[in-house]
Computed example of a mutant assay.
Amino acid sequence: MIGQSLIDSVRETVGLAGDPSTIRIVCAMSGGVDSTVTAALLKQAGFDVVGITLQLYDHGEAVRRKGACCAGQDIHDARRAAAALGIPHYVLDFESRFKEAVIDEFVTSYLAGETPIPCVTCNRTVKFADLLARSRDLDAAVLATGHYVESRARADGSGQRDMFTPADLARDQSYFLFATTQPQLDYLRFPLGALTKAEARAIAAELGLGVAEKPDSQDICFVPEGDYAELIRKLRPEGVEPGDIAHLDGRVLGRHEGIIHFTIGQRRGLGIAGGEPLYVVKIDAPSRRVIVGPREALKRTELRLSGLNWLGEGALSPEAQPLYARIRSTRPPSPAEIRLDGEGPAVTIRGGEYGVSPGQACVLYAGEGPGQRVLGGGFIARA
């Protein structure tokens, strides 16, 4: 499986001239199969590879719980993998930084009635800012990760790179990387972008790496068993207050124990009885009201974005630019347009989307399918 063509592909992905053994690459190793295979491929290609694992949080269940990352057992797995590959490995304690930049922001966002994406925040602050800086301190030419996206050097000789969707769309992680800035993208490399997950596992098995069959991370890493409400209640108990559940027509249908138990588009677990299917269509945090209504009330065509990271050509203007927009990591991109007016970036989704929630990401693409350029994106501020 690891033939010369794959080695050549890895070297092409790195895209640096010279003897590979003189080129230092820091590889972010989470302890999972993807980052381990990334380190292995770079080592096989002859580069001077240094593995770094970030300890981001710690709680009892994380040591043995499946579906977590960046703590407990995963750190041990990363250390063992680095030893098996014969590369130096370091563990950096970023717990306080992670709590401040990711966990605290996650809690604040939920209490504001939003649906945050902590993986995006982690990538743009801790991993692609702090870890990237440490990589430069180690005189690394690039920082490599096990994300399933591709990046390619521009043909204009500028040294800048563009991001593209991977060969395996089932593993596409571009939605979580939209906030990667141009300088960060120029320094990053993604050797798995041309592989499928099955191929990555086969490589791990071929090399006898113990993580070959390790389950993928599933939950948000710092939320045991996916219980967001319990985490928020523990960290900010003063922010969890009861309120009304009201219909769009103004009728009060019941009471709730805190807006943190609800997200836009939710249908189950509302705690109210009604003759028609009802969905959460709005969360009014200041008044602690959860507004429900029929499914059709969830449809949105116009979105306002904050924190826009634009990776496309030129600057945005009042003239609508056609592209594709993706508002959920589990949904394909939809035909859309973006324009810039006096209120900032605005996205029009031609066919509309359901369940659009403030705090979620709207990621922008040049097209749909594998190998499509990622044009950036922003956080949904209003829909």
Rank of each mutant, 00 (worst) to 15 (best):
D48L: 04
A179F: 12
Y187D: 10
V10L: 06
A141L: 10
F176N: 07
H256M: 13
P191E: 00
K234E: 15
R295E: 14
S334P: 00
D8A: 06
P88M: 06
P242T: 01
D130V: 14
V252H: 10
L16Q: 08
G307D: 08
A336V: 07
A129P: 12
Y110P: 04
T125K: 13
S174G: 11
P166A: 15
S5H: 02
Y110W: 13
R64V: 03
G86A: 02
V91W: 00
L207P: 10
Y57T: 09
C69K: 07
E313L: 01
G250V: 15
V223W: 06
Y354W: 02
E95H: 00
D74P: 12
P345Q: 00
G46Y: 09
E199G: 00
Q184V: 12
V33Y: 11
A155G: 15
Q266V: 06
A28L: 09
S287L: 07
E238D: 15
Q218M: 03
D156V: 00
A40E: 12
A133I: 05
A84M: 13
G367I: 05
E61F: 04
T38G: 10
D8G: 07
V252Y: 06
G265F: 07
I260M: 10
L138E: 08
H147S: 06
G193H: 10
S9W: 08
A133N: 01
V37F: 05
L54F: 10
A285C: 01
R201V: 13
L188T: 08
E337D: 02
L195W: 08
P333T: 09
R300W: 07
R11Q: 09
E238R: 00
L209I: 11
V49P: 08
Q321W: 08
V142S: 04
D19S: 09
I291H: 01
P286F: 02
